[in-house]
Design a protein around this nucleic acid. Structure first.
Length: 699
DNA sequence: CCGTACAATGTTTTT
DNA sequence: CATTGTACGG
């Protein structure tokens, strides 16, 4: 028997969850309730009891999370557990399909389409079906990809999705349906799978091949699933089949932290679980080890405003702590300054930058702050938002790699050919058609094409690719070679800002050094898309502030958390305010954000924001703050509070005013009850005497 | 048929 | 704001 000392650190509920290893188990784990610790201890406990690591399957939300948990289990046991199978649902399915995909007619080296590839393919098919040249507006490729993915993930028909979410496109029902049929066929014919296919195809194999079900069912004796509230119907079914034999399944989740509804996730999956496995034992973890009482009070208040009644109530034995601070900033600039000021103050007091985070609903909400941080020399890393793979130049670059890895990847051919000088859509189509007809010997076909297309860059491409196909070299060498070839094209195509884009490619090359094969590298790129920050700032030891979308902050915690842009339309997002269900999800999202904080929590709302066409617009404080008792918050004092003027007109900094001569302006400073400074678009900042001026207050 | 210049158009969250 | 569509000249 191994050393089980680590069990002593658990509270009774956690210990019970760890020791209940047989049968199905549902753990409802509140934010900060030691969920990760429970899962890692349980893995360690299983291994200590003599379970071979390869019989354990751990499904988490990111592969980073699963690696981290396995590493922690290893350190508890002081032995290797790397044979534990861990990863995301998508990576598990990918792995299984490489092995069993032949049952559905797939080769082991099928290509996985990322979101961009999916859209490109849909676009290609839309054009070839002639659906693009219609007078009535047809949905864009990204919208189409969304509709398709929703159908799969929510297991609903096209009509249902269109009616409920895209009624404006109902007229195109038949065209869309036809397009999707083409899309499915094309993928089948060309050995392609999108994200959804990974789940769908694996599930299909499980359903239809009892022998496979038996094999994998026997292999995985113990299954653990983290973040179960963010799984969808397909994932739930996959678990059902894979756990069918041993029925030792533990799922961990928190219904009040479900934030992936847009992806088909359904927090109700949690309540379905006991129905799927009738003898499920339920354990609740309600003691919070992370946040102070004051922060928890706010969190509980937020979630209590939900229509839905959630399953638990968090409590803590931690000290009371400081009240969360609410700061209503005049505008975004002031909001950014406030955040930067507090960050510098805290750093003076010894809080490391990496122990502070700024969270926001959407990636672009931090643009203003990023400028301010750069100005002040505060280093930061940003998570969420644009992924590296979503920028055009990186897609170009990766397309070369994909062709090298699989010469029959015609989607990538399409992209690459269009880059070459003298080749446009028509030539691309001709070349690809010829390649398709001669796909058994692509190098030969290319050779022939060089006689027809007498273009310098095309010839060079052919020579280059032949070189790459002939010689087996390491992935990073391949990348370097591609870079050499692509660079002149790159500088021509992106002549305006190629020097800014260069570092992304260089980062990618650095990333590739860890891999043994190009195929593994490409698969990882799709299944675990690197953040832009991952390659921009490779210096690991340096201290960085974290900027992150709330979604990407899931499962993490910091000493101090700032939540910015807490205004209507941003948080909650404008897209959700007309939909009760989505609004509930926004509230849960806010709850997730708040519960990331250990000691300090700052809530910031800029009361005016710029909107591209409308210019300066008044913002309303987020409803999520308004609906919480104000006693739970500390209001940050504003420096220039209302100074009432004697003639009865009250102006304060930030007010919009109208002057008979100068037009509309903004109050920027109050000097006395009679003198104020106003900024006018035309005139600049002006000192005005209220006694002599007829100033009209607009807002 | 290609490339360029300009206009329009929507902008969440992610495997 | 940066991609995506359109118009036009080469």
């Amino acid at each position: 028997m191994k050393n089980l000392e680590f069990l002593r650190e658990l509270n009774p509920a956690q210990a019970e969850a760890v020791k209940t290893v047989f049968g199905s188990l549902l753990v409802i784990a509140g934010a900060g309730s030691g969920k990760t610790r429970t899962i890692t201890c349980r893995m360690a406990y299983l291994v200590a009891q003599g379970v071979p690591p390869e019989k354990i399957l751990l499904l988490t939300f990111t592969r980073k999370a699963s690696k981290e948990m396995i590493k922690r289990a290893e350190s508890l046991l002081k032995m290797d557990c790397d044979r534990i199978m861990g990863g995301t649902f998508h990576s598990l399915c990918q792995y299984m399909l490489r092995f069993y995909g032949h049952l559905l007619g797939y080769k082991p080296n099928f290509t996985i389409l990322d979101r961009g590839d999916t859209e490109d393919l849909i676009n290609l098919l839309r054009n070839s079906l002639g659906l693009a040249e219609r007078k009535k507006r047809f949905p864009r490729k990204d919208t189409l990809a969304n509709i398709y993915s929703k159908m799969i993930n929510q297991q609903k028909g096209l009509e249902e999705i269109l009616t409920s979410e895209y009624p404006q496109f109902l007229d195109h029902y038949h065209e869309i349906e036809k397009l999707f049929v083409e899309y499915i066929n094309y993928k089948r014919e060309h050995q392609l799978m999108d994200y959804d296919d990974l789940l769908l195809n694996w599930l299909e194999i499980l359903k239809n091949f009892p022998q496979v079900r038996k094999e994998v069912g026997e292999r995985f004796e113990f299954i653990m699933v983290d973040e179960y509230q963010d799984t969808n119907i397909l994932q739930g079914e996959i678990i059902k089949y894979m756990g069918e034999i041993h029925k030792n399944i533990m799922v961990v989740g928190d219904d009040s932290q479900s934030i992936y509804g847009f992806r088909g996730a359904n927090y109700k999956n949690i309540f379905e679980f006991p129905k799927l496995f009738p003898d499920t034992k339920i354990i609740k973890l309600e003691q919070n080890y992370r946040s102070t009482q004051r922060i928890l009070d706010l969190a509980n208040a937020i979630i209590s405003n939900s229509e839905i009644k959630y399953t638990k109530n968090l409590f803590t034995f931690k000290k009371e702590g400081k009240k969360p601070v609410l700061f209503k900033a005049k505008n975004e600039t002031e909001s950014s300054k406030f955040v930067a000021d507090r960050i510098l103050e805290l750093r003076e007091k010894g809080v490391k930058l990496s122990q502070m985070a700024v969270l926001f609903r959407s990636a672009y909400h931090s643009f203003d702050l990023e400028v301010e941080l750069t100005k002040r020399g505060i280093p930061f890393l940003k998570y969420g938002g644009l992924k590296l793979l979503e920028s055009a130049h990186v897609k170009d670059f990766v397309s070369f790699l994909k062709i090298i890895s699989n010469p029959e990847d015609f989607l990538s051919w399409h992209r690459v050919l269009l880059l070459l000088e003298g080749i446009g859509p028509k030539s691309t189509e001709k070349i690809i058609n010829y390649l398709k007809q001669n796909s058994s010997n692509i190098p030969h076909a290319l050779e022939k094409l060089t006689f027809q297309f007498l273009l310098k860059e095309f010839k060079e491409l052919v020579v280059f690719l032949n070189e790459m196909w002939k010689n087996k070299i390491s992935p990073s060498e391949t990348l370097l070679n591609v870079w050499n070839f692509y660079k002149p094209v790159f500088e021509r195509v992106y002549y305006e800002d190629y020097y800014k884009r260069e570092k992304d490619i260089e980062g990618l090359i650095a990333l590739s050094e860890k891999y043994d094969t190009l195929e593994e590298f490409l698969t990882d790129l799709v299944l675990e898309p690197p953040e832009i920050s991952d390659v921009e700032k490779p210096v690991k030891d340096e201290d960085f502030l974290v900027l992150s979308t709330v979604h990407s902050a899931k499962g993490l915690e910091w000493h101090t958390v700032f939540i910015i842009s807490l205004i209507e339309g941003r948080f909650p997002s404008i897209y959700s305010i007309n939909n009760e269900e989505e609004l509930e999800e926004e509230r849960r999202l806010f709850y997730v954000a708040v519960t990331r904080a250990r000691e300090n929590l700052f809530l910031i709302a800029p009361m005016t924001v710029y909107i591209p066409d409308e210019g300066k617009t008044l913002a309303k404080l987020s409803r999520f703050i308004k609906e919480v008792p104000s006693s739970l918050l500390e209001y940050y004092r504003e420096k220039t509070e209302n100074i009432p003027s004697e003639n009865g007109k009250k102006f304060k900094v930030g007010d919009m005013v109208k002057h008979p001569h100068f037009g509309v302006g903004e109050v920027i400073e109050i000097l006395s009850s009679e003198k104020i400074k106003v900024f006018f678009e035309e005139k600049g900042s002006t000192l005005l005497h209220l006694k002599y001026t007829n100033l009209e207050k607009l807002i």
